[in-house]
Computed example of a mutant assay.
Amino acid sequence: MTPADLSRTVLHAVRRAVDEDALRVPVPARVRVERTRPGGSGDYACAVALQLAGPAALPALEVAAILRERVAAEPGVGRVEITGPGFLSFTLDAPAAGDRAVLDAVREQGLAYGHGDALREEILQFHHAREVRAAVTAHAVRRLVTAQGARVRVSCEEASDPDWARLGVTVDAHGTPPVPLTGIRPVPAGVTAGELLERFGPDAARWGLLRPAGHDRAALGPELLVQGEANPLFRVRYAHARARALTRGAALLGFTAGHAAPHDGAARPLLDLIADHPGVLLAGARHRAPDRVARQLEAVAHAFFDFHDSCPPLPAGDEKPSAAHRARLALAEAAGTVLAGGLSLLGIRAPEHL
């Protein structure tokens, strides 16, 4: 069970409680679950009972007990505890089962892993200045919110710069509607899309504009072109290319990825990041923050290389492919898919060879 699955399970329990007249509250649009903090109980925690206690005119502990009864028997949930003033703490079934579900979801959904319909009720219109960073950010935000089900229209206050198209930017209209996309620090005066394209090319230019938070200065220095670990974009793309190379290497050795999750300890950080990916994409969409997605991709790439170096997915020398290798390959392929999907949402290519 992934965090998104658990969130839906808790929300379903709220709906059941309301339908059964055990709770008389408006059903929330979503329920947030978070990883338990160090020293806490269980794998995940949720404060929904505290949020519903007031509208239900019941103590939070009583609301928690009502929801606990309806969540505890759900597949994938091992134990549900009530802690503190009314928090629900969840211990999932054996981690291997949850990890396998995450890898299966990535395999089935491909580049759309993490996309959803949480914003399906929203019809949005973004307006931005005639400035390259604002244009690229609006385009990336459009992709993020569309991936969560929203319908979006983007306008610019003046006619678009023709070079924006080479950066992948599209604008639907010109004028001044009432909902500007604010908080984006422009690039230095005189820096144009054409200049950025000439210096960096479209992919590095977009990364340099999107990776810092909107209120921070865009990173547009020569480090964007460094072919090494010091360049986060190169590291993310190289991790993707390496994951794809592992698939090709495995095919030459006559084996494919398995359906089990790896048991190696070094796999845990990467598995957790992949499980958290849908939540990061949704947060990036809600907060209009493509930088969150970029930072997530950096973390996935870092964890991928740590895992790859500690637990090689391909056998060495005369070693025969084993179930462990197939499981490791499944995780490596999932990481590559997450990296490619995230880069795509940022409008950046993910080459299979670097």
Rank of each mutant, 00 (worst) to 15 (best):
L58I: 09
Y44I: 01
V27Y: 12
Q51W: 07
E20T: 02
Y44W: 15
A60R: 07
A49W: 01
V25W: 04
P59T: 13
G39M: 03
A60P: 11
G40V: 02
A49Q: 13
R35N: 05
T36L: 01
R37H: 01
C46Q: 10
E34H: 08
V33P: 07
A53K: 09
A45V: 04
Q51L: 12
A56Y: 02
D21N: 10
L50F: 11
V48P: 14
Y44T: 05
Q51A: 15
D43S: 07
A22Q: 04
V25T: 10
L58T: 09
D43V: 01
V18M: 06
G39P: 06
L52T: 14
C46W: 07
V33K: 06
V25N: 10
Y44Q: 08
G42W: 00
V48Q: 14
P28L: 06
P55F: 02
A45R: 05
T36N: 05
R30H: 15
A53N: 13
V27Q: 14
E20Y: 02
L61D: 15
L52M: 11
G42N: 03
G42Y: 03
D19Y: 02
D43Q: 08
A49R: 06
A56G: 06
P59W: 12
L61M: 15
G42L: 00
A29S: 15
A45D: 10
S41L: 07
L50K: 12
P55A: 03
A57Y: 01
P55D: 08
E34D: 14
R32I: 12
A53Q: 12
V27N: 14
E34N: 08
A57P: 04
E20L: 02
G42V: 00
P55S: 06
D19F: 03
R35Y: 03
A57S: 11
R37D: 06
R37Y: 02
P38C: 02
P26F: 04
P26H: 11
T36C: 03
A45N: 08
D43N: 10
D21K: 06
V25F: 03
L58E: 14
V25E: 10
L50T: 12
P59S: 14
A49T: 12
A56H: 03
L50G: 12
